[in-house]
Design a protein around this nucleic acid. Structure first.
Length: 415
RNA sequence: GCGACUGUAGCUCAGUGGUAGAGCAUCGGGUUGUGGUUCCGUGUGUCGGGGGUUCAAUUCCCCUCAGUCGCCCCA
């Protein structure tokens, strides 16, 4: 296959069967999040680069090496969105939504772009659903957001899920912890893996969940976030955990859980599937108080998550088959036109109807109907045409009966 | 960005230094108006792409593209 005939690396064509599954995920998200009071927002697929650079974090991998940045003809630097939250926060300001607080917004089926090495469940263009809740700085919001995420996954019929949570504390706690961690690792820096030495510069918290063998001996004795965290932050975290327990949402506390986006504070969580490989994370998010203020000076709390549709798609069970279509079998062009006319009426009443559009023997037309899984076949041959009738055949029982053309629609009802 | 594996028909795969096969699928037919079972027939592939070695490469070598696995990162 020539290069032009293949889609760009890390992208794919969703064919009808897969599209149906993705659509199902999207619809489930709208339905479930709708029950929690979320209204859908659709933001542009690209934003000014600064929207992401400044809010996701200049130093994050996502911004520094994975973003699709380009200059438009007017010389503006734009970027394809690498995640969902920043654009929604920008839209919050653009649309002066502070008067609607507290505000619940969801997005569903949005394309998201990251220049990464593709793998199963990791694409350069993937799609997300997610929610953002603005204006509640109390832990109940974190609890409800996580509950909404679980409800969504549950409604999709997923099993084998694990919720991991952690707290990063307030921005001050986070900064203090970072210092403490640096102080701990600095003396042994030379013994750490190459990856971790780099992490020490960018995001020291990341060293804690390193998989490199060299690092393992240092991790257990590293300072814990709880050591430096304010009592308020600890109380906040306890409330979140308590809420999850009350709602019966099982979780694992993972003190090393750190997100690669700079804007998180307090609660961070990730939901993994035990049925996936390295890309097992299917839904993740947290609290981002401060992000809204950072972007436009309003001190508004935020909590939310994003979820990757392609990863979910690999996990959902077979969808039930769509309802079977009605298929025509015709003999001659006059009969074909008559069939097309009747088909229009049947479609108006909601049926899926197929009319043979090519020159085919009746036998071939029946085979075609079978392949379409038609349950009912309507035959219009020379005799029927002359009599103004059609023959209705039940493909399962093989029974056939005559019916006046005018009565066909009422006979089949909603199919 | 790093390491490894893979790439032959629509799909799943076999195969050979002398330009290639199976199963399934597809399409057609089994006397002209009846399918799903069965029977018969049917290959439609630049053997991912480019270059090299060779009398000759799909097969060996190099590069490249893509996918997969792990790392990194993340949904």
């Amino acid at each position: 296959m020539s290069q032009m005939m293949q889609p760009p690396r890390g992208t794919y064509d969703a064919l009808p069967e897969q599209s149906r599954r993705l659509h199902h995920i999207e619809e489930t998200a709208r339905r479930v999040f709708g029950r929690y009071g979320y209204g859908e927002i659709r933001t542009p697929i690209f934003e000014f680069t600064d929207v992401f650079a400044r809010n996701v974090g200049e130093a994050t991998d996502i911004v520094s090496k994975e973003m699709y940045v380009f200059e438009d003809r007017g010389g503006e630097s734009l970027s394809l969105r690498p995640e969902g939250t920043a654009g929604v926060v920008r839209a919050y300001y653009s649309n002066k939504m502070k008067h609607q607080l507290p505000l619940k917004l969801m997005y569903a089926g949005i394309p998201v772009f990251r220049y990464e090495r593709p793998q199963k469940g990791r694409y350069r263009q993937h799609h997300q659903v997610g929610i953002e809740l603005f204006g509640i700085s109390e832990p109940w919001a974190d609890v409800e957001v996580i509950a909404a995420g679980m409800a969504f996954l549950k409604e999709l019929g997923l099993t084998g899920l694990r919720v991991n949570i952690n707290t990063l504390g307030s921005p001050a706690d986070r900064a203090a912890y970072r210092e403490k961690l640096l102080a701990y690792f600095e003396p042994v820096k030379g013994k750490l893996s190459e990856e971790s030495q780099a992490r020490l510069q960018k995001n020291p918290l990341r060293v804690l969940d390193s998989k490199q063998a060299e690092d393992q001996s240092f991790i257990p004795d590293a300072p814990k976030p709880i050591d430096v965290m304010s009592e308020e932050s600890q109380a906040f975290y306890r409330k979140v955990k308590e809420g999850l327990e009350v709602l019966g949402i099982p979780y694992d506390e993972v003190p090393t859980l750190v997100r690669g986006l700079d804007y998180y504070t307090h609660t961070v969580f990730e939901i993994h599937s035990t049925d996936l490989g390295a890309q097992s994370q299917v839904l993740s998010g947290g609290r981002y108080d401060g992000l809204v203020a950072q972007m436009g000076n309003e001190d508004v709390a935020g909590v939310g998550f994003g979820s990757g549709m392609e990863r979910l798609e690999m996990l959902i069970a077979e969808l039930s088959a769509p309802k079977p279509p009605v298929s025509f079998v015709v003999q001659g062009d006059d009969a074909r036109f008559q069939a097309m006319k009747l088909a229009e009426q049947l479609r108006e009443s909601g049926c899926e109807v197929a009319v043979p559009l090519g020159e085919q023997s009746m036998k071939a037309q029946f085979k075609r109907a079978d392949k379409l899984r038609a349950q009912t076949v309507i035959i219009i041959g020379e005799t029927e045409l002359a009599e103004g009738t059609v023959t209705v055949k039940d493909m399962e029982s093989g029974e056939q009966k005559a019916c006046k053309m005018e009565e066909l629609v009422s006979l089949l009802g909603a199919c």
